[in-house]
Design a protein around this nucleic acid. Structure first.
Lengths: 337, 337
DNA sequence: CCTGAAACTGGTAGCGCTTCCAGTCTTCCA
DNA sequence: TGGAAGACTGGAAGCGCTACCAGTTTCAGG
C-alpha cells in the first residue's frame, strides 16, 4: 500500500550496483564477513538502506543449504490433544530459544495421515534444519522416520520402546514418587492412582513412580484406573476407583486435568478433599490453581522443556554434540493434599 | 542411521538421467503438468521411486517464488498471553486448513522487540506466502507493517482503530448482548460486568454488548471492573465489584478465565452461585466446564476461527478476493446462570 | 626500493528447480 | 500424400544468493 507500484523486490545485484561494488562484497557486508574495507562496507549499508533491501531468504537457503527454520512436530491421532495447554507452554519456551538462534518455528500437527506424510516429506527433503518431536506414542511411525532422517532430531519426552540419541525429558519418575511419598507422609495408606495412557512414556513412568513409592513404604499398590490425561477421563476413573475401593484416602493422578476430574467426582460423591481423600496431580498447569480445592501437584518446567529442546537442537545444527537432559520436577503443595 | 553413507540427496537431474529424459520432462511429471507421454511419465516415476527422490523445497521455492508456508503471528508483549488455550484451538483449526492447501505453518510469537523485527523481516522479504495476524492491541506496530507488506494478510479479530481489508472475527457484540439479555431474562436487574482489556477489540466490543443489552432493557449499566482476560484479574475485579455494589445479582465476565476468577471470589465471599449471583463467561473454554459451578458462557467457534482465517488466506494467495467473515456465537447454559 | 604476507576485491560457478521456447514428432484431415 | 495443428521434448535461461579463488592492493620489514 505504501507505494503504488508493486515495487519489485530489490536484489543484491542492485545494492552492489548502487554501492559501486561487486555482489560478493555486498554479500560479505550483509553477512558481516571479513575482508571488506570500511568505506565499501558503509557504501553498501547506505545502498541497502536507500533501496530498502531485504535479502531473499529462499535464495540464501538454496545457496547455504540451510533453511533457517526448525520444526516442532506434535504427534497424536486426535488433533484435540494439542488443545492441552501443555503444548502452548512448550511452544513459548521453544520459540524463545529459536529466536535467539534466528530460526523460525514451523509447527506440524500430525493428526491425519496426510499430516504424517507431510512430515515425512519434510524430514526427507530437509525442509527444515532440524526437528523437535513430541508426544510420540508407542509404535508411532514418526519415530522411525525421524531416526532415519539425516537431520538433527530432538525428542521431547522419550518415546516408548525407543532410545533416542537426543532428548529432553522431565523427571516423571521422581515426581510421581515424590507425590506418592508425600501422601504417605500425610499418614494416608489407602492410596490409589489414576494413571495416564500406558502407551506413553509419561503414563508408564508416572505409574512406576507411584508403585515404587508404595512398595518402598511397604504398602500394596492399587491396580490403577486408567485415563488419557483429560479431565473427563479423570472423573470417570475416580468413579471407578471409588466403586472398587470405597475406603481409599489418597489419590495420585498422573495429570492435573485428571486430578481436576477426580475432584469433581469426589465432590459429587460427597467426599471432602483433603479431609476424606487427599488428591495430588501432575503438571502444575493453570487448572491446578483454579481447581476447587486448589490442587497439590507435581510441578514440571514445561517452558524450560521447550526451551531446552530448542537449545539442544540448535547445538546439533551447529554440529555440537549435546547430552540428553532430564529436567527436575518438584511438589507444589496446595489445599488438596 | 539407515545407510552408513550420508546418501547425498538425489536431484532432479539424476532422476532425469536415470529415466532417460530431460530435466524438464522430469519436472513436468513431478508437478503433473501436461505434455508428457505416458511412457516417459512412468519411466520418471520409476526413477523417482528407485532413487527415493524427494524434491528440494527450497529450490522449488526459489524458482516459483512461493515458499509453501503461511505464518501465524501472535502478537502481545507478554509471551504468557500465548499460554491461553484459545490460541491452541486457533492453531488446530488453521493447521488443518493449511494442510489442505499443502502449506506449512510458521508460528511467530512476537513478545520481544527482536521477535517483532523478525516478523517485519519476514513480511518484507516475503519469507512466507501469507500471514495471519492475531491479538493485535491498539497501536501495535505490526498492524502497520502488515498493511504495508505486499503480501496477503488476514486478521484474526479486528485490531482496534484499524479497518483491515480481510479479517475473520467472532460476533463479540451479539454474544455479549445475548449473555446479558439472558441474565435479564432470569429476572436479574443488578448486573455488573468484568470487562477485558479496553485496548483490544474483543474487550471493547463485549463491553458494548453488555451496555447495549442493559440500556435496551431500561437498566443502568454499571461502570465496569476491568481485567485482562486472566483468572486472577477476574478474581480481583469481582472483589472490586462486590465492594462497590454489594447487592449485585448478576455478572457478565468477558472471558471464561475471568468468570472462573469471579466464581472463586464469590465462593470466598460466601455468595451462592447462581442463587445469589448469576455469572456468565465468554469463550466456552475447558475451564468453563470444569469450574465450580460449571460456567454458563458464550460459545465462540475458536477452531473455526483459525480454520476460516487459513482458508481466507489460502484464497488470497490463490489470487481470489474473499469477503471478511464474522462467525456466530451462542449461549451455552450451565449451572452458573 | 624490493619482497612477501595479509587484506581486499570481483568474476564465476554453482545451489536444484521451474519455465519459456524453439524445435521434433505425431496425427489426422483434405 | 502433403501439410498443418497439436502433442511432445530438451536446451537454456533464469530465480537471488553464497563461496571459492585468482588477482590486485596495501604495507611493514629488510
Amino acid at each position: 500500500m505504501a507505494q503504488g507500484v508493486p515495487h519489485r523486490q530489490s536484489t543484491l545485484d542492485e545494492v552492489a550496483g548502487l554501492a559501486g561494488v561487486s555482489r560478493s562484497v555486498a554479500s560479505r557486508v550483509l553477512n558481516n564477513a571479513p575482508h571488506v574495507s570500511r568505506a565499501k562496507r558503509e557504501a553498501v549499508e547506505r545502498a541497502v538502506h536507500q533501496l530498502g533491501y531485504v535479502p531473499n531468504p529462499t535464495a540464501r537457503a538454496l545457496a547455504t543449504r540451510q533453511t533457517g527454520a526448525a520444526a516442532l512436530v506434535v504427534s497424536g491421532e486426535d488433533p484435540s490433544i494439542f488443545a492441552d495447554p501443555f503444548f502452548a507452554q512448550v511452544i513459548v519456551g521453544a520459540s524463545a530459544a529459536l529466536e535467539d538462534a534466528d530460526l523460525h518455528l514451523m509447527l506440524c500437527l500430525t493428526a491425519s495421515d496426510r499430516g504424517r506424510r507431510r512430515v515425512e516429506q519434510l524430514l526427507r527433503s530437509k525442509g527444515a534444519d532440524g526437528v523437535m518431536l513430541m508426544a510420540l506414542r508407542e509404535d508411532d511411525p514418526l519415530a522411525r522416520m525421524a531416526e532415519e532422517a539425516e537431520l538433527p532430531v530432538v525428542f521431547g519426552g522419550r518415546p516408548v520402546g525407543l532410545d533416542p540419541r537426543w532428548y529432553v525429558d522431565v523427571d516423571n519418575l521422581g515426581g510421581a514418587r515424590a507425590a506418592t511419598e508425600y501422601l504417605i507422609s500425610l499418614g494416608r495408606t489407602r492410596i490409589a492412582t489414576i494413571c495416564g495412557r500406558p502407551d506413553t512414556e509419561a503414563g508408564r513412568t508416572r505409574h512406576r513412580g507411584y508403585q515404587d513409592a508404595m512398595l518402598a513404604a511397604g504398602l500394596e499398590p492399587y491396580p490403577p484406573a486408567a485415563g488419557d490425561f483429560t479431565e473427563p477421563s479423570g472423573a470417570v476413573a475416580m468413579a471407578a476407583l471409588l466403586a472398587r475401593h470405597p475406603d481409599l484416602d489418597g489419590v495420585f493422578a498422573a495429570s492435573d486435568n485428571m486430578g481436576a476430574g477426580a475432584l469433581r467426582t469426589l465432590r459429587a460423591a460427597g467426599r471432602r478433599v483433603p479431609a476424606d481423600v487427599a488428591v495430588i496431580g501432575f503438571d502444575d498447569l493453570a487448572v491446578a490453581r483454579i481447581a476447587e480445592p486448589p490442587l497439590t501437584t507435581v510441578h514440571q518446567p514445561i517452558e524450560a522443556l521447550g526451551r531446552e529442546m530448542a537449545r539442544m537442537l540448535v547445538a546439533l545444527i551447529k554440529g555440537q554434540k549435546p547430552t540428553p537432559l532430564i529436567l527436575p520436577t518438584h511438589l507444589v503443595t496446595r489445599a488438596s493434599a
